[in-house]
Every structure is written in C-alpha cells, then in structure tokens.
Measured scan of single mutants.
Amino acid sequence: SKICLVCGDEASGCHYGVVTCGSCKVFFKRAVEGQHNYLCAGRNDCIIDKIRRKNCPACRLQKCLQAGMNLGARKS
C-alpha cells in the first residue's frame, strides 16, 4: 500500500496532486481555504509523522506544500 508523503500514514489516494492520507488531505484543504496563519513554536523543523502530525500545523502545512500539494490540482 502507498504511504502519505506528508505524515507517512497509509495513503488513501492522490489528493491535490500528491499521494496523501485522508487526514492530511482534509487538513490541507482547511488550512488553505481558511487562510490560517499558523506559526511554529519551534524552528520550523518539527517532525511530522502519523503520531505527531497534529502537534504543529505550521510545519505540517509547510510539508504539504513542499510535497507539491496544490488546491487547484486536478484529480488524477
């Protein structure tokens, strides 16, 4: 099975251009559409994995963007 390129959980498919799990898919959509201005309490290098993905939305969003997630991406 495929793994989420953001948190490493089991992926549910290709979302916004990137193979991700459902949790990261929903997080990314809400983060971008809600125009959240997340700030990292650390050094913008928090570990984002299945267990810690909820700890720092700033670093999670950064990881989504680095993976290439794009709200305008067509479903493939």
Rank of each mutant, 00 (worst) to 15 (best):
K29L: 08
H36M: 10
A41C: 12
C4D: 02
S1F: 10
E33P: 05
C21I: 01
V32T: 15
C40H: 02
H15W: 14
D49A: 05
C21A: 00
C59L: 01
L65G: 09
G42H: 13
G34D: 13
R53Q: 09
K75M: 11
D49S: 10
E33S: 13
G8R: 10
S76K: 01
H15Q: 05
V19M: 15
A67N: 07
H36T: 12
R74H: 07
N55W: 07
E10Y: 06
K2Y: 07
G8I: 02
L39D: 15
R43C: 05
C4V: 00
G22P: 09
V18K: 06
L65S: 12
Y16F: 09
G42D: 15
E10S: 11
L65V: 07
A11F: 04
C21Q: 02
S12V: 06
R52K: 09
L61W: 13
C21K: 00
R30S: 15
G34K: 06
D45Q: 14
V32I: 14
L5A: 10
C59Q: 00
L39E: 10
G72Q: 15
G17D: 11
D45L: 07
K29I: 14
E33F: 05
K25D: 07
Q62V: 12
A31S: 12
I48G: 11
Q62C: 13
Y16N: 05
N70Y: 13
Q66F: 12
C46V: 01
G72S: 13
G8V: 02
V26M: 09
C59P: 02
S1A: 05
C14L: 06
I51H: 15
C14A: 11
D9Q: 07
T20Y: 07
L5E: 08
R74Y: 11
A31M: 15
C14Y: 08
G34Q: 10
G17P: 04
L65R: 09
M69L: 08
L39A: 07
C14Q: 14
G8F: 04
A41S: 08
Q35D: 15
C59W: 00
K63H: 06
L5T: 11
C21L: 01
S23C: 03
K54G: 09
Q62A: 12
F28P: 00
C40E: 01
A11C: 05
L61C: 01
S23W: 04
C21D: 00
R43K: 14
A58H: 06
K63E: 04
P57F: 12
M69D: 03
G13E: 10
C14K: 06
G8D: 07
I51L: 14
A11E: 12
Y16Q: 08
V32E: 13
L61F: 11
C4K: 00
T20Q: 03
I51K: 07
R43F: 10
R53V: 14
N37W: 03
G17I: 03
I47Y: 05
V32H: 04
V32L: 09
G42C: 07
F27H: 02
S12G: 04
C64A: 11
R52Y: 03
Q35L: 07
E33G: 15
D49I: 03
S12E: 15
V26C: 06
C7L: 00
V18P: 04
C24A: 00
G22H: 06
C40Y: 01
Q35S: 11
V26S: 15
C64D: 01
F28H: 02
K75A: 15
